[in-house]
């Protein structure tokens, strides 16, 4: 486990340290527990084991089994307990082990966590950060590759965020854990082990979208694991003289409509990329926002490159399902070649 006290002294302001997303998240959780005595971490296997993805590695040892504890294997119980702990003044940071296992807790997440502040007229806030290892790409069993952002973004009272790299993971998790509202924190599990430079002192603004790569010809809009794929695509497109901007949406609720508009107003073309199924996916919301904000400047309809309207397939078919480099390039081609009338 990384320890901020050993990392920070060596680090000049502005300097960076190489971390995987798993390590960055682990560090963010450790610092949160350190700085916020009301913060609690619990879920299945998060204590002694340190989580199946080791995101909570070493935290129980360091902060004790009162603040970092294993629960029975029952997601509704984990989330329902979070409500009561929040009512008692705590800041729960529960983990649902895999995206698909958030479904058994849907009543507690949607009907309880999402509504308690409202139902109680603001007297019982729900400062809960629900960590959900999310999305596909690791050839996992069924229910281990779901994209839940559209479902949760649709729910009044919930906020949804997804980091795309270790830098985002560290700063967004710390920020989310300090919020007085419930935040669904979707960790792209296929990106846990990729390392990148992280500036621990300067994360920029933790709100809104972020231009991951500036460009002039079109905007690729993505979040989670799809951001790095879009960056790859942008490099390939550059070889053909296409200058692609990549917008890391980060917050899936609230969506940064201004940031979206600013990017697309400049590039005049947009392709939104996500892993979840197309119909009623978050890409539809993004396309609607872009259209509302940029209708007069758009040179082509907003293109969606997404998963298909099928259950998330087995590992062997995963690459057929997920938006791959070629499919994203086809999407780019369609918006570039679009001719009005």
């Amino acid at each position: 486990m990384l320890d901020a006290t050993t990392l920070n002294p060596a680090q000049e302001r502005g300097a960076t340290v190489e971390l995987s997303m798993q390590a960055a998240l682990n560090l963010a959780l450790a610092e949160t527990l350190d700085e916020d005595p009301k913060a609690l971490i619990f879920g299945e296997d998060v204590g002694r084991l340190g989580g199946v993805f080791r995101v909570t590695d070493g935290l129980q040892e360091r902060f004790g089994a009162t603040r970092v504890f294993d629960t029975p294997l029952a997601e509704s119980g984990i989330l329902g307990m979070s409500v009561g702990l929040a009512m008692a003044g705590f800041h729960p940071i529960p983990e649902v082990q895999f995206d698909g296992f958030a479904y058994p807790a849907v009543n507690q997440i949607i009907c309880q966590i999402g509504r308690m502040n409202y139902r109680s007229r603001g007297t019982l806030p729900m400062p809960i950060t629900l960590r959900v290892p999310s999305f596909g790409g690791i050839r996992a069993p069924e229910h281990h590759g779901e994209s839940l952002e559209a479902m949760f973004a649709h729910v009044p009272g919930l906020k949804v965020v997804s980091p795309s790299d270790p830098q985002q993971a560290y700063h967004l998790l710390k920020y989310a854990a300090q919020r007085p509202d419930p935040v669904i924190f979707m960790e792209p599990k296929s990106r846990y082990w990729q390392k990148a430079q992280v500036n621990l002192h300067d994360g920029g603004t933790p709100e809104g979208a972020r231009v991951a790569r500036p460009g002039r010809h079109l905007t690729l809009i993505a979040w989670g694991a799809m951001v790095s794929r879009c960056l790859q695509v942008a490099e390939l497109a550059e070889e053909d003289g296409i200058d692609v901007e990549v917008l890391d949406l980060r917050w899936l609720k609230p969506i940064d409509a201004e940031g979206l508009a600013a990017s697309v107003a400049k590039t005049r073309r947009a392709v939104v990329v996500h892993e979840g199924p197309r119909t009623s996916g978050l890409g539809a919301e993004v396309a609607a926002l872009v259209t509302e904000e940029c209708f007069n400047t758009l040179k082509a309809p907003v293109e969606r490159v997404t998963g298909f309207d099928v259950p998330y397939p087995s590992g062997d078919l995963e690459d057929e399902y997920l938006p791959g480099i070629d499919r994203i390039l086809f999407g780019i081609q369609r918006v570039l070649e679009h001719r009005r009338g």
């Binding site: 609690l40 009162t66 603040r67 509704s76 119980g77 989330l79 329902g80 307990m81 979070s82 409500v83 009561g84 702990l85 929040a86 009512m87 008692a88 003044g89 705590f90 009543n107 507690q108 009907c111 309880q112």
Partner: peptide, 19 residues
């Protein structure tokens, strides 16, 4: 929601133990 708040009670109660 029938039984919706039963788990909340457990969480609140466990919060008293943690405190």
């Amino acid at each position: 929601v029938v039984a919706g708040s039963v788990l909340h009670a457990v969480g609140w109660a466990q919060g008293q133990v943690i405190k």
